[in-house]
Nucleic acid binder design. Sequence first.
DNA 1: TAGGCCATCTGGTCCT
DNA 2: AGGACCAGATGGCCTA
Length: 202
Amino acid sequence: MDSVDSVYSDIDSNSCDFFPHTDTEEDSRGSPRSVSPEPEQQPQKKRRRGRGRSDGTVPVVRKNRRVKANDRERNRMHNLNDALDTLREVLPDFPDETKLTKIETLRFAHNYIWALSETIRIADLQTGKPGDAPLLLSSARLGSDAQSPGSDARSWSSSDSSSSSSPSYCASSPGSPARPEDYGYRPQDALFGFRSFVPGVY
DNA sequence: TAGGCCATCTGGTCCT
DNA sequence: AGGACCAGATGGCCTA
């Protein structure tokens, strides 16, 4: 296939009207997707990007295929965002009403699951000690308690440690997704309040 | 204004 | 062949 099968400089036409995609503003955007000004100078590792044929034409069939692919891709990303929203809904609320970003949501969920796991684990260890149920989480803690510098949901969800943004961050064992200290969270001194947050848990 | 976040477009690759 | 997935590129919006 010749490099030209890459695409159109003239495809602006497909600027998304397919979806009412709920969210916000990008509709109005519909940014003209122009080809980068200096296509020829791409570093080799970069992929070739949209460039029409030398004569600037694009076969209709190919163009249609691209439009359909864009449509699917958009839909796919909307589904992904929906899933993210669903995930946000089951995470504890926190005072700051701003929405967690995608990465924050994922990290927060990761830590939250880990904390719940720890809660269960410790509860199991302490079986037979009625009334001593260790409860690691509380919405307050997740939200605004001052366990650590800036310990709110965002700090929980963030990871400012140097390893934070590395892919290995989530690759560690399920039992300890990362060093809890990285989030200013230590299960051993966080044993309170969960009951009020999730009645019936444990 | 810079930087972060996001939506979208796009081409490549893998899979069915 | 066509769809799903992925990652790079681009530009808009928002906030510090």
